[in-house]
Simulated scan of single mutants.
Amino acid sequence: MSSPYDQEIEDLLALYRKQRTEAVETRRRISEMTGTATAPRQTVKATVSAQGEVTAIDFPTGAYHRMAPKELSEALLSTIRQARANALEAVAEVGSHGLPAGVRLTDLIEGRVDATELLAEEPAMPDEVREYIARGRPDVRRGAGR
Rank of each mutant, 00 (worst) to 15 (best):
T106I: 11
L105H: 09
R112L: 04
G98S: 01
A92Y: 07
L119E: 00
E117C: 07
L99Q: 01
A90G: 15
D114H: 12
M125L: 08
E128H: 04
E121W: 07
A120H: 12
G95Y: 06
L105P: 08
L119P: 00
D107A: 08
V129H: 03
M125W: 00
V113A: 02
A115E: 12
L108G: 02
L99C: 07
L99D: 04
R112V: 00
A120Q: 13
Y132N: 03
A92K: 14
A120C: 07
E128R: 10
D114A: 14
E131D: 15
D127E: 14
D127H: 08
P123V: 07
V91M: 05
A115V: 11
L105N: 08
Y132G: 02
S96Y: 06
H97E: 15
A115L: 12
I133K: 04
E110Q: 10
R130E: 10
D127Y: 06
G95W: 07
V94T: 11
V113Y: 01
M125H: 00
A92Q: 13
A124P: 05
L99N: 03
P126T: 12
E117P: 00
V94I: 14
T116L: 11
P126K: 09
T116C: 03
H97K: 14
P126Y: 02
A120M: 12
A124I: 03
L105I: 13
V91R: 04
E131I: 06
P100I: 10
E93K: 15
E131N: 14
V113W: 03
A124Y: 00
D107Y: 05
I133Y: 03
P126W: 05
P100W: 06
E117Q: 15
D127N: 11
G102A: 07
T106A: 13
I109Q: 14
G95T: 09
E131P: 00
E131A: 15
A101E: 13
V113I: 13
T116A: 13
L108S: 08
R130D: 04
V103M: 07
E117I: 02
V91C: 14
T106S: 14
A90Y: 05
R130I: 03
G111H: 08
V94R: 05
D114E: 15
L119A: 02
L118P: 00
M125I: 02
R112K: 12
P123E: 06
L108V: 06
I109H: 04
E121F: 05
L108H: 03
H97C: 06
R130A: 13
T106W: 05
G102I: 07
G111Q: 08
E117V: 07
A90M: 11
L119S: 02
E128G: 09
A120T: 15
A120D: 15
A124W: 08
E131S: 15
G98V: 02
A92S: 15
E89K: 13
Y132A: 13
R112W: 04
V94G: 01
G102H: 09
V94D: 06
I133A: 06
A101W: 00
A101D: 14
G95I: 08
